[in-house]
């Protein structure tokens, strides 16, 4: 018998085409004098990384978290605090501070997940939201780290032999990390772990009665997503050379959730599609409309009603 692949041959090459475009993007933008947009493209990829990590929870595992920004902010503050306290030492090396940001995101997710994952539905949504807001207020009141003003970084993290301070270089580093993350997520989705997550989303009770320790699988997914969000936060702090409590505000969690729904729940490219669409619309619409958020709302409604599988779903049969 033949195994279903879910992919038609013609579509198998477009990720490579997209990667080629991404590799050439800084040169293309340079040719037209749009160098500013290199950082904008970097921002899209960082938000896509964050949205993809949330998509693992919401889209694949059915865990609607409204507190995902907590891990994003925690990762950003990890890099910023390391730079503030131990500036000029190896602590500002990306080789140390970025993995540490992932570790902080993972540990925080392990703690929050161990509690919130015991609840379901609306209670899960509200408890994740509550934890993220707690963290938001903690950093809001931490005067030594800028409080509500946030905190500036004097420079980006360092890498041996690579100047992350150059926007184009930083773009390529983020591109590489995002590509690896997407590869891992794609493999995970088709591996046993991904099937279990999708099974839990479909029918948690049945998974339990088949012998799956549902809670453990959810917690591991939550920790993985937390680590990935922590990395996204570290990158965003680097990109802006600035971190603030707003990075972990529930509005940020909401924006990422909208990106996931817009891009396509449970779809590998959903995070990228959603992040790119949202940020591009935010960038373009204000030029034409003073009250552009209304149009953004209409577009979101249109996607929900006419393309319920999201933007990434449109390209799939």
């Amino acid at each position: 018998m033949t195994m279903p692949t879910g992919y038609s041959r013609g579509l198998a090459y477009w990720p490579l085409a997209l990667l080629a475009l991404a590799l050439l993007l800084p040169q293309l933008l340079g040719m037209f004098g749009f160098d500013f947009y290199v950082s904008f493209a970097t921002r899209i990829m960082i938000m896509a990384l964050l949205a993809s990590s949330l998509n693992l929870l919401v889209g694949t595992g059915g865990m609607v978290s409204l507190g995902h920004a907590a891990f994003f902010g925690a990762g950003a503050y990890t890099v910023a605090i390391l730079a503030r306290e131990w500036g000029g030492t190896p602590a500002t090396s990306a080789l140390l501070s970025w993995p540490l940001a992932m570790l902080v995101g993972a540990l925080l997710a392990a703690f929050i997940g161990a509690i919130c994952l015991r609840t379901k539905g609306v209670y899960f949504i509200m408890s994740t939201l509550a934890f993220a807001q707690m963290l938001f207020y903690v950093f809001l009141s931490l005067k030594s780290y800028g409080g509500d003003d946030g905190m500036s970084l004097t420079q980006r993290s360092t890498l041996p032999g690579i100047d992350l301070g150059a926007d184009v270089v930083f773009y390529y580093v983020v591109l590489a990390l995002f590509a690896v993350a997407l590869l891992l997520l794609g493999r995970l989705d088709r591996a046993r772990f991904g099937k279990v997550l999708r099974g839990i989303k479909d029918n948690e009770l049945r998974m339990e009665s088949l012998g799956f320790a549902v809670f453990r699988f959810k917690l591991v997914a939550f920790i993985l997503a937390g680590a990935m969000a922590g990395l996204a936060g570290a990158l965003m702090g680097n990109l802006n050379n600035f971190v603030s409590p707003n990075m972990m505000h529930w509005e940020q969690s909401g924006v990422v959730l909208v990106m996931v729904i817009l891009g396509g729940l449970g779809r590998l490219w959903g995070g990228l599609a959603g992040a790119a669409a949202m940020l591009l619309l935010e960038e373009i619409l204000p030029n034409f409309l003073p009250h552009w958020q209304i149009l953004l709302g209409v577009i979101l409604l249109a996607v929900v009603f006419f393309a319920p599988r999201g933007l990434a779903g449109i390209f799939r049969a």
Partner: peptide
């Protein structure tokens, strides 16, 4: 089922 790489 904690396998993350090999496709099912």
């Amino acid at each position: 089922s904690f396998r993350f790489w090999q496709p099912v």
